[in-house]
Every structure is written in structure tokens, then in C-alpha cells.
Design a protein around this nucleic acid. Structure first.
Ligand SMILES: [Mn+2]
Ligand SMILES: [Mn+2]
Ligand SMILES: [Zn+2]
Ligand SMILES: [Zn+2]
Lengths: 149, 149
DNA sequence: ATTGATATTGATAATCATTCTCAATAATAT
DNA sequence: ATATTATTGAGAATGATTATCAATATCAAT
């Protein structure tokens, strides 16, 4: 179900009712391009809903992920990040080993992705595994941290 | 410094002394091909060193990683895995969304890796980032979990 | 609009992997 | 053998995420 429809009161998505915290958090992702931690989402939501609780943030991030409105990204620093689902391109992310932030890289060229898919699906068939998704991850220093080193 | 030399008493690696727990845990990785969690390493080490503590396991995994004898892999289930460094190939790992285990896929073809490297390094240059390493990750079902579904 | 069934909330406690603290011990240099 | 100091194991502490639960808000049926 597209988010536009669910956004209005009176439109449930399965068992999921539309509520203020959910609308607010979804709005935050629509207005922020980056890869936000739960804590960052909490602080942004807090400006509009001063009583919102951390538990609600986590619960909402969870169902928005399930609904495929946002992506959950598990980083190396022990905290997850979330981003709005904008397209179905394979994301290439940089995980900064210094500050822990996640950065977007330009997507790989179409034919490179095609060859990756082919290669991976071939191996998957041989091994008897079921591929849901894949991605490319880079570890290194973000522009800011590279300077200050 | 190669592990063979460090393995003997009286041979330090910088400030790192050679001790029973370190020898034991390194041996465990040499004898186990898989991707082990700290808990799994602890249980295996426990058979030889009944008094070993969890803190020592974590500390040892940490310095073995720094020494580049083992790789640390951050999984999606909130616990890290570790594997012996055997070569410098780009690892393609399957992270089973059902059981949380990590599996090795055959490495990508040489020229595919070369093209990936080129593509990534090109983007890295433009963005002013410093690439330390990269890898391809698959999320899906392992052979075992695929059957039992 | 009012009602009733129930999904959601915020506060708080609990969990779980990992890290820290510290006094006792073991590994190396002399 | 002795002195120096890195390492250990036990247990406490941390920090992100989940679970619990009574109060509240949403939505479908009236
Ligand atoms: Mn992204
Ligand atoms: Mn591997
Ligand atoms: Zn950084
Ligand atoms: Zn599995």
C-alpha cells in the first residue's frame, strides 16, 4: 500500500493504524535524505511531539521497515541506521570507521549490477540458498574524518 | 609478524605477549573453517581452558583482529562473527535472516572484482573518502533454513 | 456523533552483547 | 631469581534495543 493512502486517518494498513508518531516519523524521513539513527529520529520527532518515547520510535522504525517504507542498515558501531526507500537500486554505503556515520555512494553502473546479480544468483542456485537482497559495503573514512586525521 | 613466530613463548608482537588463551583461540580458528561468534569461541576454548573468561575471549578476538590474523564480521542479529584470515580475496557472505549464521559464498570472478574496485575507487576519489576495504553481502535463507520453511 | 473493541502509546524494567574495572597472576627482560 | 608490567578472570557497567503494562487513541459499527 502506498504511503500516501496510509497517511490519512481512517486508512489502516492491515492491522496498522495511522497515528501521530507514525505520521511524524515518516515525515522526518521524507524531509531528511540521510541515514538516521534511532536516537536522531527521536530528537527530530521530539520537536513536534515532546512526549514521544524512545520505545515508540523503535516500534515505528520496525513497522515502517516491515512495510518497506524505510530501510534498516546495521552499522559497525553497534547502532542501526534507517533511510527512506526511494528506489530499488542497489545501495553502496560507506561506513566511516571513525565517526560511525553512513554515507551514500553513487550507485554502481547498471551492467556492473547486472553482472553481480548474475554471479550471485548462479552461486545461490548451486548452494541451495534463497537470496532476498544484496548490497556493497565500504569501510573507510568519510570526507570530514579524512580531513581531521 | 607471521603467527608462527608469535605462537612461541618469548616472542612478543609489539606489546602483545604470547599466552595460553591467545594460543588456544588462534588454534580454534585454525581448526574451524566457519564464522564463529564470541560465544561459540568461548565454548570451544572452555574445553581446553575451563577457567577462561568471556572478557578474555573478547579481548583476544580484538587483538587478533588488530593483528589481522582474524576478520571481524558484523552481522544483522546484533552479534559479531570472526573468521581466520586465509587470503586477501573479497569475501561474499550470506547472512541468514532466519538463523543468523554467516556463510561463505564462492568468491566473485577476478575481473568482476577488478571492475568493482575501479568503480568504487573512482567514486571514492570524487567524494574525497578513504576506502579501507569493501565487501558484498547477501541477505537471505541458508540451505538449512530454506528447507525447513 | 457515540460507542465499543482493540491497537498504540509512554514510562519503565529487562535483555543481551560487549566493554570496563581491578586485584591477582603470569610472561618477559635483566 | 627478581623486577617490571601485560594479562587474566570475576563481576560490574554500558548502551542499544525489546518487553511489559496500564492508560489512551484510533477506527468500525452503530
Ligand atoms: Mn542509502
Ligand atoms: Mn568468510
Ligand atoms: Zn567520519
Ligand atoms: Zn539459516
Amino acid at each position: 500500500m502506498p504511503y500516501r493512502r496510509w497517511k490519512r486517518h481512517g486508512h489502516r494498513h492491515g492491522m496498522h493504524r495511522m497515528t501521530e508518531p507514525r505520521r511524524c516519523i515518516m515525515k522526518i524521513f521524507e524531509e531528511n535524505a540521510g541515514h538516521l539513527s534511532a536516537e536522531e529520529v527521536f530528537m527530530l520527532a521530539n520537536r513536534y511531539l515532546p512526549n514521544i518515547g524512545m520505545a515508540t520510535v523503535y516500534r515505528t522504525l520496525d513497522i515502517l521497515s516491515q512495510m518497506n517504507y524505510i530501510n534498516k542498515i546495521v552499522s559497525y558501531d553497534g547502532r542501526a541506521r534507517y533511510e527512506l526507500v526511494r528506489d530499488n537500486k542497489i545501495h553502496t554505503h560507506l561506513f566511516c570507521v571513525n565517526c560511525g556515520r553512513v554515507f551514500e555512494l553513487p550507485s554502481l553502473s547498471e551492467d556492473l549490477i547486472e553482472r553481480l546479480k548474475k554471479d550471485i544468483n548462479g552461486n545461490a542456485e548451486n548452494m541451495g540458498i534463497d537470496v532476498h537482497s544484496f548490497d556493497v559495503r565500504i569501510q573507510g573514512l568519510c570526507p570530514e574524518c579524512k580531513k581531521n586525521k
